[in-house]
Design a protein around this nucleic acid. Structure first.
Lengths: 340, 340
DNA sequence: GGGAGGCATGCACACGTGTGCATAGCAGAG
DNA sequence: CTCTGCTATGCACACGTGTGCATGCCTCCC
């Protein structure tokens, strides 16, 4: 169907080997021939088959990326960061969403193994040990981002969620709040655990106790769950004066829930999110949040995979774990309690 | 490196041909042998090489998806719809973002041609004729979603933006507005042109004129551009009493801009968006918008590509253009003008 | 019992590309 | 002029899989 290397060779009056070398810029071929072959190839619209090339070189020039959900703005920005590094380096991306579902995971991993991707970036998703073992057995380098089980993987990029959780909580404490609640999302594992730990540490350091009901768990990270959380807090005998949310999506829903109940933010209740997704700057009031460097995290993960592919096996054996820091972003959704 | 079909054949004591047929479920092989071979293959962790298979069958079991930007919530939801169809049908997705940039386009198309994707879904991005010609010459079926140049492509999924633009405008007219402005985004081409046309038609039908300055163009579709538009409208001698925005991202920014200037929405100014992205339900006030069936559009595009791949060439020659309708979603950001 | 026919399997080759090795041509030195 | 060595190119094979064709074996029927 498509034009092959042999078609080009025939037209150029050389062996297909010469075309192969010319296209790849081998020094074995004279500059004049290289130039001529390339020109003819371009004229004919020749594009080397990655499949055939992959068969010989064991390199597919493709990376796999697994995210929990593709329509989550947090992952979208990470994907953007990954692509910014992968594309200029000549790598294409197989992107798939696990939907936090084991069957999906199985299908995805099978497909990535079948296509012999050169590496996989696993993005903040609960991921079964079985599937990660499959990848390891296939010899596919794996880099994880913010994954729940820190210990298991050798190559990781983490955001310092403990630090972030502490900074957000400290900010609320310093504003004078004494009843600070937390909305958590247990299914995200490590990420939530660390933000929660940071929250507890700062609460403890400030001598504040956490009454039962002030740590609330949701089943998803969409705004709808934030609404549910608002109802919960409003049903308490005395609602908290500030709420720290696992992420911005929840905070967005919480804001709405509080406002629908007639509370003013931040006067009646302060709200803080996490991640700094684009929309957090446009809520009413604009959301105080923790700016996690999403694009940079994605880019770093991509750089790490590429480094593993370049490096020799010896270097690859050495675990490489990188932790990145974000920064607190104070906007208008937090203020001193009871303020006018 | 990886386990090959011959390794499995050796272990099973058969020819590699038999393994190939057993894996693919050929009726030539006895059920007993098929069963046994498959069991051994699974035990050994064998995964057929898509590259080798692709070389023989001319099928890569991969689709290319080109979007303008991966972190735009509108595209994210379309991607989700595409994946929901592609994955269960055994297709992987190469996803790439053009960033509305010609160089990126070139790199992306080259990479998709190299990987011999079975089809390409082009998603609402200005796309150069040169690149689309490259795909056509390579014999790669192309399905476009909401693309700017309607005529050029044979297989398309469109949202009825004319109808949507009319419905939104009519809604505002029926509320009693007489100064209705429009924020447009010219770079998106056809999509914007149709929404704008719908707006003008309804304005004309209602006997309303559009004073200069009431049609405003922005350079991007992020909330920041909506902010700019707000400043523009507020600088007019008399600002409009309602604004229809090309999409929700702009509406989100506009809301903020109006509110920062002390205007109340919808009392002082009504705001309507388009697309119904997730967050539009959580703005303050919740945004009136047009619900474009994004996931369904993505799914339909994927179904169309798969149909083209199944169908014979004859059927493929016949253009297939499908137009999908959305529905108006009235929330709290629109009301009669001058209301309390 | 012998022949025909169907079923299950193996053989050989092809897909498009990359690489080790052989080779032809040429220049330079003795 | 011959020999050495370097440069540029071609040849042959391999990568892992799918398919047309040949083949062996078993069953069924006369």
């Amino acid at each position: 169907m498509a034009i092959t290397i042999k078609d080009v060779a025939r037209k150029a009056g050389v062996a297909h080997t010469t075309v192969s070398r010319a296209m790849r810029g081998s020094t074995l071929i004279s500059p004049a021939t290289t130039e001529r072959v390339r020109r003819i190839a371009t004229e004919m619209g020749y594009q080397p088959s990655a499949a055939a090339s992959s068969l010989k070189t064991n390199r597919s020039q493709a990376l796999g990326v697994i995210v929990s959900a593709i329509d989550d703005p947090f992952f979208s920005e990470i994907l953007q960061g990954i692509e910014e590094i992968a594309q200029p380096n000549g790598y294409s991306l197989f992107i798939a969403a696990s939907q936090r579902d084991l069957d999906h995971e199985r299908v995805i991993v099978r497909s990535m193994r079948a296509h012999r991707v050169d590496g996989v970036i696993l993005c903040s998703t609960p991921f079964s040990a079985e599937q990660s073992k499959q990848l390891r057995l296939s010899g596919i380098p794996l880099v994880v981002i913010n994954n729940q089980s820190a210990e298991e993987y050798r190559h990781s990029i983490y955001h310092d969620d403990l630090d972030g959780g502490r900074q957000v909580t400290r900010h609320l404490v310093e504003l004078g709040h004494r009843r600070i609640a937390y909305i958590g999302y247990a299914r995200s594992g490590r990420t939530n655990a660390n933000r929660l730990a940071g929250y507890r540490q700062e609460m403890h350091a400030a001598g504040l106790s956490i009454p039962p009901g002030d740590e609330f768990e949701v089943e998803a990270t969409d705004p709808a769950s934030g609404l549910l959380a608002a109802r919960h807090f409003l049903s308490l005998p005395t609602p908290p004066s500030a709420v720290f949310c696992y992420n911005d999506m929840l905070a967005v829903g919480l804001l709405r829930g509080l406002q629908e109940a007639g509370l003013r933010v931040p006067q009646d209740c302060s709200v803080a999110g996490f991640d700094n997704i684009t929309f957090s700057a446009y809520t009413t009031p604009p959301l105080t949040t923790f700016d996690q460097p999403k694009r940079f995290i994605g880019a770093e993960a991509a750089r790490l995979v590429l480094a593993l592919l370049d490096g020799d096996e010896a270097r690859e054996k050495r675990p490489r774990i990188r932790t990145l820091q974000g920064s607190l972003l104070v906007r208008a959704s937090t203020a001193a309690p009871g303020g006018s």
